[in-house]
């Protein structure tokens, strides 16, 4: 296990390094400059030049990148250009918000998805199976803002059951915060449900068809026991991979939900920073999403290795 981790970590570091380089290079293509973005179109060019100079944004691109990465590897995320204050608290607050929303969505969708997949597999070929597969498939492909709008119209404005903003009043307790996050989390549940259910169904089908399950049934064990003991674990294996692959999205890709429900997460932080030429903020946001992606992929691999001895023996997954 430790060996696997040690082998994979350098790769992860290289991936993140390349990502930071790509974002920096891409950032050079953004129209305008940070001085203009802060001071607005009507400001005097001399003032714009002065601000760019103060911020160091008028230096050669590679010098700026060198300074940034030098600080980053020492754990310093630099100062925001727009807010002229350390980036870390902004990223920290946004990440915490994203994790809360992503967490609520996860807690709802993982059990639902696995349950749906297993039920579908146990009813293979029947109407219930088809219904689950079809609903899962459809829910996955409908954009979040479409389902979000319909949910807002029905539950927020029509029935007035839920608030239609994800941001609770200041000082709200955990329960209230949770209440505010339910409606925004549902479109995410829709998106991810199909993936998980599909993988759980496939895993279950495979397990049900396997020799050991058949043997167990032939031995006269009750079906419920067979399912609980053998099938569930096998159904979970592929599901873990899917869950891990969706983590990046569930934490960093929620710009739409954050826009629709007025929520300050990491996705809208990245987008705002890009539009404002706030390069240190943009890099910090991107690196945060990158780290989460790399870590969740790594965690999934470790978990798979732990659950499945064949992979552990086989080395690189």
């Amino acid at each position: 296990m430790l060996g696997l981790l040690l082998r994979r970590l350098p790769y992860a570091a290289v991936t993140l390094f390349i990502l930071s380089l790509l974002v920096f290079a891409g950032g050079q293509l953004l129209p305008g400059d940070v001085g203009r973005a802060v001071l607005g179109p009507l400001a005097d060019p001399r003032a714009v030049a002065a601000l760019n100079h103060q911020l160091g944004a008028d230096r050669p691109a590679l010098v700026q990148y060198g300074e940034w990465i030098g600080r980053f590897v020492r754990g310093d995320m630099s100062q925001s250009f727009a807010f002229r204050a350390p980036v870390a608290p902004f990223v920290g607050a946004a990440l915490w918000n994203s994790l809360k929303l992503g967490g609520v969505a996860f807690t709802l969708v993982v059990p639902l998805g696995i349950l749906g997949g297993i039920v579908a597999a146990l009813n293979r070929g029947r109407l219930l199976d088809r219904a689950i597969v079809l609903v899962g498939l459809s829910a996955t492909v409908v954009p979040e803002f479409v389902s979000g709008i319909v949910l807002i119209l029905v539950f927020g404005i029509g029935l007035k059951l839920f608030p239609i903003s994800a941001t609770p009043p200041p000082g709200a307790g955990a329960a209230v915060q949770l209440y505010y996050l339910v409606l925004p989390a549902i479109p995410l549940v829709f998106i991810v449900f199909g993936y998980i259910a599909r993988m759980a169904r496939a895993g279950t089908v495979e397990a049900l068809d396997s020799d050991y399950a058949r043997t167990a049934v032939l031995k006269g064990l009750p079906r419920r026991d067979v399912v609980m003991r053998h099938v569930l674990r096998n159904a979970l294996l592929p599901t873990i991979t899917v869950v891990a692959s969706q983590t990046g999205y569930l934490v960093g890709g929620l710009v739409v939900i954050e826009t629709l429900f007025h929520y300050q997460g990491i996705g809208s932080l990245i987008y705002t920073a890009a539009r404002g030429h706030d390069f240190p903020m943009l890099e910090a946001g991107i690196m945060t999403v990158g780290v989460i992606y790399v870590l969740s992929t790594l965690a999934a691999d470790m978990l798979l290795a732990a659950l499945n001895p064949r992979i552990r023996a086989g080395g690189r997954a």
């Binding site: 001071l39 607005g40 009507l42 005097d44 001399r46 003032a47 002065a50 601000l51």
Partner: peptide, 13 residues
Amino acid sequence: DPANASNALSAFK
């Protein structure tokens, strides 16, 4: 002051 990144500079120009 032109050296000051002032948004009021164009109004004073």
